[in-house]
Amino acid sequence: MALPLIVGFDGSKPSLAAAEWAAGEAMLTGSPVRLVLAHWPHREGTPVPDAYVRLQSEAVDLLGRTVEDLRARHLGLQVDYELLAGEAPTQLLHAAEHGSTLVLGSRGTGGFAGLLLGSTALETAGRAEYPVVLVRDHADPRLPRHDVVLGLELGEGRAPVIEFALAEAERRNSALRVVHAWLPSIWWAIGTLPPGDAERTAIQEDVTEKLQALLQPLAEKYPRVRLHIDVRTGSAAHILVDEANHAGLLVLGRRRQRAVSALGPAAHAAVHYGHSAVAIVPHA
């Protein structure tokens, strides 16, 4: 049985966008969807305030209405909800700890109890041991969109990121565009003779060959996915923001060894300034 897509939900527009994205993904994969709303628990041994009971009732009502709306607009969708007591990032991580993908609105707007503010989504993505998809609610439908783009660095341990992107491309019956950003050496920048086209071309060809060697063993398991490699010169942050404005889904890696909540500057830029859903996949 497919693992559920866990959606952090608080009734805000970004969390509704996250639920909608998860529903569309579930229709491609056959996975169920679970909306999870975390709230601060009531202290045991003290009277339960009427306001607390009312907030819980409102939360259940909001979750129920959202579930029914998703079922009505996505026929055949398996979707339910869960109300959890505790700190939002911790409860969301527990809800998806068995390997599910966690889907969050990347910018909260003070919805139900204000539980999914942008900092909460980023903290959760930075702590997760499984993929987290951050969804924006203001994508411009007029922008042309590639289906799946993978922002990839060279190095070991990136197989989980590559496989996630390949699987997403296969589900969408689309090509996978692999983007790698590189900056010229500082010696080139301050030297009296800037690098010519021949030097740049040689480096791009060398990087492309290394990317192909990294991708090919995993791509063989996804023969229907067409690969396009794009080696670009410039700041990774700027390039990924540009990609996040045009991708249907942008897939990025995150090193597990980084400090809690640290996604890296390029990933932060893509999440904050881009318009597409961004999948953050942890790797060694």
Score class of each variant (00 low, 15 high):
110 G>V: 01
175 A>K: 12
81 Y>I: 06
279 A>K: 01
262 A>S: 13
33 V>T: 07
276 S>K: 00
32 P>E: 07
106 S>D: 03
140 D>E: 10
264 G>S: 09
241 V>F: 06
115 L>D: 05
41 P>V: 13
253 G>Q: 01
189 A>V: 15
151 G>A: 15
134 L>Q: 04
75 L>W: 04
167 A>N: 11
141 P>V: 01
38 A>P: 08
36 V>W: 12
230 D>E: 14
111 G>R: 07
44 E>G: 12
103 V>I: 15
93 L>T: 00
133 V>H: 13
9 F>R: 00
209 E>G: 11
82 E>G: 05
16 L>M: 14
130 Y>H: 15
28 L>Y: 10
229 I>L: 13
128 A>I: 00
71 R>Y: 09
243 E>C: 11
190 I>P: 02
267 A>V: 11
61 D>K: 11
17 A>P: 09
52 Y>Q: 02
146 H>Q: 12
58 E>G: 07
222 Y>A: 03
9 F>H: 05
159 A>G: 10
187 W>L: 15
219 A>I: 02
44 E>D: 07
260 V>I: 05
216 Q>R: 12
198 A>Y: 00
43 R>M: 11
158 R>F: 09
281 V>C: 08
65 R>W: 09
209 E>K: 09
191 G>R: 00
49 P>C: 04
42 H>Y: 14
248 G>H: 03
219 A>K: 03
257 Q>L: 11
122 L>P: 03
278 V>Q: 05
217 P>F: 09
